[in-house]
């Protein structure tokens, strides 16, 4: 095993454990953690076996196997960001509904 493999495997493990830790301590909700857990597992799997990385790269027609790692990383970040946008949209419509409810509740109660 090369040094770089060990390092990237450790990064994957640390990421995984951090996410698990955040969930256990209640600072991250499970529903927002799935993509993070998946990406950390993916990093671990790809970094543990060079042959697997090379095999998948070969099958996909990628000549330089490490670029598969970059591709996977970029795709996971994209997915996570889109899920953030979805979450923000849901939150903003919930907050607006609350603001409307406040307006209706405070009817007759004077100043804004």
């Amino acid at each position: 095993m090369d040094i770089v493999q060990i390092i990237s495997f450790l990064i994957g493990v640390v990421l995984f454990l951090s996410v698990v830790f955040l969930i256990i301590t209640g600072r991250l909700k499970e529903r927002y953690s799935l993509l993070w857990l998946a990406s950390s597992l993916f990093i671990c799997i790809l970094s543990i076996s060079r042959r697997l990385l090379e095999y998948i790269s070969y099958k996909l027609g990628i000549y330089y196997p490490p670029s598969l790692l970059f591709l996977a990383g970029v795709l996971f970040l994209l997915a996570i960001n889109i899920s953030f946008s979805v979450t923000i949209s849901r939150l903003s419509s919930k907050v607006d509904t609350l603001a409307q409810e406040i307006a209706l509740l405070k009817e007759n109660k004077g100043s804004p």
Binding site: D96, A99, Q100, I102, K106, E107, S111, P112
Partner: peptide, 22 residues
């Protein structure tokens, strides 16, 4: 006028909707 106040600016769509809810 009777006035309903949004605590912050939502947009005209949200304002009309508040009126409809009322």
């Amino acid at each position: 006028f009777k006035v309903l106040n949004h605590p912050y600016n939502i947009g005209v769509g949200g304002a009309v909707q508040t009126g409809l809810k009322y």
